[in-house]
């Protein structure tokens, strides 16, 4: 269990496979992420990148191989899974805020029920986080009263309230209007610079260029190519990478 705690490797994936019925979505993904690293995963839709990131907190189950997060192997033991989920924050494409709760209740819910933090403490932390994402004045509104960009920033604050060691972003800006993308990216960039370990599925190449340590190109359930942004953008090795980059960068 303590295999990784001495080293800096916070996520270790070894030959991870997954099938949806007979469809082979992940075909042997092996990957390690260092503590404090910012990894951007990109690739065409249907390439398995979302499925892969959702395996990291077991929203999807992998059927073969090994995933070790923060020294704990993900398996059928639900306690391990819940422990991992407390260490791993996740932000979704569709925000998935709880519509029946106010912004502040959305943020304080998990610390109060999962970590048993006192009301005063969780409230104070939530207000700090709302200031960090720039919308403390929205604390008592309901999600439906906020813009998409504001909702996504609340979702980030909600994930951060559990004080995770890793943050997963699953296409966080894909459902947003263009003028709201920047406000979310600014928060993510600030988070990356603060030393948080981040794995993000995104096509925001500006974000990747600014803060990613490593970019990984997924296609057809495999890692086709990976490297630092400078290398991926300026000197991609694989033809599929070149083609995909040319498609998303030239329009």
């Amino acid at each position: 269990m303590t295999e990784t705690n001495n080293t800096q490797e916070i996520i270790i994936c070894r030959d991870v496979h997954k099938w949806f019925d007979h469809f082979h979505v992940l075909k042997g993904i092996s990957l390690t992420v260092q503590k404090g690293e910012v990894v951007v995963i990109f690739g065409p839709s249907g390439s398995g990148k979302s499925t892969f990131i959702r395996c990291l907190n077991r929203l999807e189950e992998h059927q073969k191989g090994q995933i070790i997060v923060d020294g704990i192997e993900l398996g059928n033991d639900i306690r391990n899974v819940e422990k991992i989920r407390q260490e791993v924050g996740m932000v979704f494409q569709q925000f998935n805020l709880f519509p029946h709760l106010t912004v502040i209740q959305n943020i304080t819910l998990a610390p109060a029920w999962v970590k048993r933090v006192t009301k005063a403490q969780s409230h104070e932390l939530a207000m700090q986080l709302l200031k960090r994402v720039g919308i403390p004045e929205q604390a008592d509104k309901y999600p439906a009263q906020l813009s998409g960009g504001q909702q996504q920033r609340v979702a980030i604050a909600r994930a951060l309230a559990m004080q995770p060691r890793i943050m997963l972003f699953d296409e966080p800006t894909s459902a947003l209007d263009p003028e709201m993308i920047k406000e979310v990216l600014d928060v993510m960039i600030e988070l990356a610079k603060s030393g948080m370990t981040i794995v993000a599925v995104t096509h925001e190449m500006g974000f990747a260029r600014a803060v990613a340590n490593r970019m990984i190109f997924f296609d057809k359930g495999e890692i086709v190519e990976q490297g630092p942004p400078a290398q991926i953008f300026n000197d991609p090795q694989n033809d599929r990478t070149k083609l995909f980059l040319s498609q998303i960068l030239h329009h």
């Binding site: 907190n57 929203l59 639900i78 819940e82 989920r85 407390q86 791993v88 924050g89 996740m90 979704f92 569709q94 998935n96 805020l97 709880f98 519509p99 029946h100 819910l109 998990a110 029920w113 999962v114 979702a155 909600r158 994930a159 559990m162």
Partner: peptide, 30 residues
């Protein structure tokens, strides 16, 4: 109730009973 509600609750570390009582039922009953 959207599947995303279950996923968001689970991703925060809420267990099954907490997810049902705090997230799903209040919305479903309303």
């Amino acid at each position: 109730i959207d599947r995303g509600q279950y996923e968001a609750a689970h991703a925060l570390g809420l267990n099954g009973a907490q997810t049902t009582l705090l997230i799903i039922l209040p919305q479903a009953l309303r």
